[in-house]
Amino acid sequence: MDYFLQNLINALQWGSFYAVISIGYSMVYGVLMVFNFAHGDIFMLGTYIGFAIATLFIAVFSALLPTWVIFAAVVIITMFLASWIGVFVEVVGYRPLRQAPRASAAITGLMIGIIFETGILIFLGAKRLSFPPLMESHVYNIGGVYFTNIKVMVIVISLILMLALHGLIQKTKWGMAMRAMSFDFLAVPLMGVSINIIAPLTFAIGAGLASVAGILYGQAYPILDPYMGVLIGWKAFVAAILGGRGSIKGAAMAGYLLGFIEIFVAMVFPSTFRDLIAYSIILLILTYRPRGFFGMEYSTKLRL
C-alpha cells in the first residue's frame, strides 16, 4: 500500500509539470489553431529567467526577507518577464505567418525554439547550471511514504495555477474574449475584439504558466541545460493532443494521466519498457478516441 501511495505522490508531482506545460499548447491552439512548438523552449527560457531572478534575490534579500516572500517575488517577477517571451514569439513568429499555410506557421515555432536553445548556448555556454533552492528541503515519512515539502509545493502550486487560469477564462472579460475567439476567429474581430491583442495575451499566459512550472521544476530537478525543454515539451504536446485540442481542462487532465501512466508503468513493468508501454497505451487511447478527451467535433470549427 505504501508502495502504491509513494508512486501516487511521484506521479502527482511528475504529472503536474506535464499538466501546466500542456495547457500552454492547448490555449494557443484554441485561439490560433496552430501548435506553438516553441513552447518547450519557452519553458526552458522561463526556467533560466527564474534562475537569474532567484539567484539575484537570494544574494540580495536572503538575510532581509522571509523565504516565502522571496519565493513569491521570484515567481511573480519571473512570470511577468517570461510572459513577454510569449508575446515576442507571437509577434515575431506567428503574426507574420497568420495567413500562411498551416505547415509554415507550425514550423516557425520549431525554429524559434532552436534559436532560443542556441542563444542560451552562446550566451551562457553549455555549462550546466544548478537552480538555487528557494526553500530548505525537508523529507517527511508518513507510514513508509516519503515526500518532501518541495513535492507538496509543486503539486499545490500547480493546482492553484490551473484553478486561477480556469477562473480567468470563465469569469473575466478577457477570458470571454479568448473563448469567443477560439469559437470563431472570423466573426469575433467584427465585434471589436482584436486578434492582435488576444493572440499575444494567450501566448503570454502560456509562457507565464510555463515559467512557473520552470521554477518548480528547478526546485525538484535543479539542473538547467539549454535542451531541457525539448523532451518535456514534446511529451506535454502529447498530453495536449490527448486532452483534446484546444481544451484546457483536457490538457490538464491528460498531463496528469501521462504522468501517472509513466510512473505506474515503470512500477509494474521493467523500467526499460517504460516509454514503450506508456506511449503504446496513449496510441491505443487515441485510436479509439481520436479527438482526445474533450476535443470538439471537426465540423463545429469554422476554419478546418
Partner: peptide, 14 residues
C-alpha cells in the same frame, strides 16, 4: 533503467 534526458527517476528509485 531510464533513457537519456530523463530527469525524474522517482518510480525507479521507489
Amino acid at each position: 533503467s531510464f533513457t537519456t534526458k530523463d530527469t525524474d527517476f522517482s518510480s525507479q528509485l521507489t
